[in-house]
Structures are given as structure tokens and as C-alpha cells.
Design a protein around this nucleic acid. Sequence first.
DNA 1: GTGAAAGCGCTAACAC
DNA 2: GTGTTAGCGCTTTCAC
Lengths: 317, 317
Amino acid sequence: MHGSGRFTPETAAQVRAAIDRLGFRPNVLARQLVQQRSTTVGVVVGALDNPIYAELVMQFELEAAKHGFHAMFCNTQGDENAELAGLGSYLDYRSAGVLFVSHPPGWIKARQMIEGRIPAVFVTCDSDWGDVVRCDDETGGRIAAEHLIGLGHRRLAYFGDTVDDASNRDRRHGFEHVVRTAGLTPTVVTWNRYRAFDRDRQAQEAIADGITAIFTTDDYGAIELLEAADRLHVDVPADLSIVGFDDVIMSGLGRIGLTTVRQPKRLLAETALVTLIERIKRGPDSPPIRQTVPVELVIRASTAPPKHLTQTQFRLS
Amino acid sequence: MHGSGRFTPETAAQVRAAIDRLGFRPNVLARQLVQQRSTTVGVVVGALDNPIYAELVMQFELEAAKHGFHAMFCNTQGDENAELAGLGSYLDYRSAGVLFVSHPPGWIKARQMIEGRIPAVFVTCDSDWGDVVRCDDETGGRIAAEHLIGLGHRRLAYFGDTVDDASNRDRRHGFEHVVRTAGLTPTVVTWNRYRAFDRDRQAQEAIADGITAIFTTDDYGAIELLEAADRLHVDVPADLSIVGFDDVIMSGLGRIGLTTVRQPKRLLAETALVTLIERIKRGPDSPPIRQTVPVELVIRASTAPPKHLTQTQFRLS
DNA sequence: GTGAAAGCGCTAACAC
DNA sequence: GTGTTAGCGCTTTCAC
């Protein structure tokens, strides 16, 4: 039935009819057992209710299906044990690969479990053992800074996540580099996304300190900041410009209107799958593959020249 | 190793050590092949980038993991063939169950494929053959109407999706019932979520028609409507009150502030999994299980008394 | 080119 | 109780 062999057309037709009639479906478990390879790919994600992950994970599945793979997934919720349990089950299923969407909370043990057994590709985050597909985070930070400085801002801040992984670090470095090159000194603040009170205080301090523009490490943080600004009656963008990173769908809503650095989600997913397939082909011993995809600045309503500039212009006119 | 049998403690320790050393993991495929049952559950979802689905699907996986199941998923994107392909692979994997998160686009063929083979539970939508777990849509529509009428609105509209499935229908019925009982006549408009231009026109017509309050069949639509209102410079809630349905995380943002009927996502997922397990236990021939979970009105900034009322109050004072 | 047979890794049933 | 064996549903190899 599977390609080879030749039968009389009527036999083939009969068989096909029987298949349809009985609804026969080959048992994937049996096939994969004997073939010693599976079409399952495991996706490990922090939490699907974070829009950027949901968008990425959706693209993964779409791409996986396109290549004949079947997607499994688990939400780690930032919990190491949940992650290891998920990875364990991918091991048990003899998955063809695992896709990490965010920096694994239990990365040491995760490595012990997976390395050399299942091809792993890290998307949107870094790794010193698996393959990695990332966007050009450094450039992202740079264009954010260039945009803000171009608008006339002189007092700039970077608001970063408590987990300072390679992606966040590169975004910050790109940003800091441009700011320093312009002869300015960026303020760097780390804020805990789980503590609303602290966030408000930190936002307020930055503003009291004369900061007029903030680059955050992701849209999630940027939107939190927007909320904090609203609560503090700080006008965005008149009193404060904000640039995010990711470009989640939400950021494009009129009411949010976040200027941000767009990650090409579809392309990230395509590249991730192609990388995975390449890795399967090359085997575990060939050197790690590292891919970078470009980013793009999307200008919306959350950025504008700082107020003192607009006032000056007003006085001049 | 699996519970029964007794060995000397040292043998057990040796074996365990060997397992750890070699990283042995039982092959799930082999086990499930011989046991004739699997721990895979398939989730079929429209598109994960719709927040309500992402939130639900995340809860499914969390619940599934809690019960020892492993989640696979596929995005149908509203495409019948994509859905059938996904269902096919769940069949091939001999999945323990399939969870439908939205009304299946290819429901006739879907039924033919799945019914009698894999337990199916429909969450947030209806079905005349599988088990269903839904929230109390009718009551949801009612409390939305009661809230708006209680605020003093007299000209009310329901904005429904083009797919008028059982959930949408019940929400509308509940809404209409209360409105009519109050001696009023609701306007019903069906809008196509894929055509922004039409939506703006329809929103404008409703407002021109004197509508002061709209209940939409989901938050997605409500937020679209909010956007349309902003574009048309219609003030929400002063000129127009809006009530959604779902309570996605986004709706709780200060800038969105959508009054909405909350679906208890976690509870829906818990109930769905319990129902699935019950179905597996009972076998395919026992009658369908239907479960309902309660909803709750969440009042935010998108609803207020209609302007003529506020003006009257102003004149009176 | 076609059919029979071996075996993938595991579990369950059955003698010992 | 413990060891052995059959067999889950496929694919692949190897005679014919």
C-alpha cells in the first residue's frame, strides 16, 4: 500500500475501499516503535497566556504540521519541575525534537536530560549546547535607542526583566551602546514583573529623576509600564515615551498603540523548524547551528519628542 | 520495577543506579502499543493567537498534565482540511481523547472520523454527539442585559459573530429575553470580524440609529468595537456602553477596561478533563454528558448610564 | 517482485 | 513470588 509493489488496479481499489469502509488508520505508535524515529516535536513554553508565546507556539505548530510533525506542548509556568516533567515525557515519546520558547528555568538539569538524546532548538533565547534561532536583539536595542534619541530624548532608561538572559542582555547592550555613543548615560532598572507595587514606584522614581523615554525588554513589560504611567497620571507620550520589544497583536490596538521592535514570529518559527530538520539530518555531533532573523521598528503612539522640546518649539513659533 | 515484586534493597538500589546512569526511560510508544491505550489528548483550536483560546488551551494542558495526560494540539485556522488532518493524527496516535475548543469548521466529517473511536469533549461550544462543557451562556446574556438596562439604557443592540453556534445563540437569547421583558426591542447585527470597513460602518449605523449600549458575543468583538468607536470619535462609555463576553486578560488592562461576562477558564478546563476521564471510564455507549459552569459579570470602564440620563440628572440638580 | 519472518520495547498472562 | 513467553501493529529484511 505504501508506494512499492504492484497489484491489479482492482485489487488496489478493493483494498482502498476496505480501508475506507473500516476506517483503517495505521497505528503511529507501532510504526514509530519499529522505525525508531517519531514525528512528535515537543514545545516547552512558559505560559501560553502570554501573547508573545501564544503567537510563537501557534506558528510552531503550523510549521511543524507543514513538515509532517505533530506538536506536543507543556506550560512550565516558570517552574523547574513542571519543565522537567514535560521534557521527560518528550523523552518517553522519543520525540524528534524539542523547541524551547523561553529560557528554561531548570536549564542545568534540562541539559542533562536532553543533550545528546533529542535535538533541541532554542527560539528567542540562547543556549550554549543546542541550536539557537533568535532575532537580532542587539540591533533591536539599537534602533529603539536611535528612534528615541532622534526624537530628541536625552534622559533614557532601559527597563529589564529580572531574568537577564542573553536576549535581554543583547537588547540592553544595543540600546546602551547607541545611548553612550550619543554622549549620554542610560539608566538601567530591573523590575520584577510580579510586583505591581514596586513597578509603580520604580516608574515614578524614573520620572522624578527626569527620564523622558524608556525602552523595555518586551511588550509585556512595556504594557505594564503604560498601565503604571496611566495610574500615575503620567501622559504617554507627552511626558514619557515608551518603546517595547516583540510586537504582540495587542500592541497594535489603537488604545495601546505601542511603538515597538517587531520580532518576525512566522519567520522565527519557519527557521526553527528548518533548523530542527537540519539537525536531525546532521546528527547530534555536528556543531551547533545559530540563526538570526531581522527585526523592524514599528512606530505607534507611545513615542514622541520630549515635552521640553515641544514647548521650546511652541515658544519659538 | 513497577511496584510489584520484592527484591533485596541492594538489588533495587543497583537497578535504580543503573537506570540513572544510563538515563533509561521506558518507551511510551511500546507501552501504549501493548496496552492499547494512550495518554495523549488532542486539542483542536481555531488559532492560538486569539487570547481566549490561548488561555483555555493553556489550562487544558495544565489540567491534562495533572491527570497524567500529554497534550497535542493543532490550529485549524478555520480551515476544514487542517482540522481533519489534525483529527487524523489524533486517530493515528490512538489518543485518549480530543478536546474541541471551538465549533469545528468541518463538523460533519469530524463527526464521521471521531465518533465511536475517540472520546470527544466540546468546550465552550455545543455538539449533539460528544460530551459538552459550556458556561451558562444564556445567563451571561441575561446579566449583560440586566446591567445595561439597570444603567438606564433603552436602545440596546447585540453584535454577533457570523458563526451563530449554540453558544452565541444562547448568549443572544438570554440578552434578548431580558430586553424584551423590559418592554424594549433589541437590535441584532451580525458582523464579519474579517472586514474592518464593514465593522466601522455597522457601528456607525447603530449609533446613528440611537443605540447607546451594545452587547457583543465575545471580548474579541467587543475590543474591535471599542477600536471602531475610537476611530469614529464615539466616546465609550459616555456615548456608547459596551459589554463583552469571555474576560480575556487583555480586557482587564486599564486602557481597555472592558465590562464583560467572565468565563471561568480554569474551571472549564478542569471540568473538561474530568468529563473526558469519566467518558473513558463509561465507554462510548453511555449517554452524552453535559456540564455547565457559571459566569460572572465584571464591571469595568466601558459601561455607564447613557448620556441623556446624565444630562437629565445634571439639569435636576 | 512477492511472501514469510523477525523484531522494535514493552506488558500481561502464565507456568514454575 | 519470580522467570518466561506471547504478542501489541507495524516495517524491513531476506529468502523465494
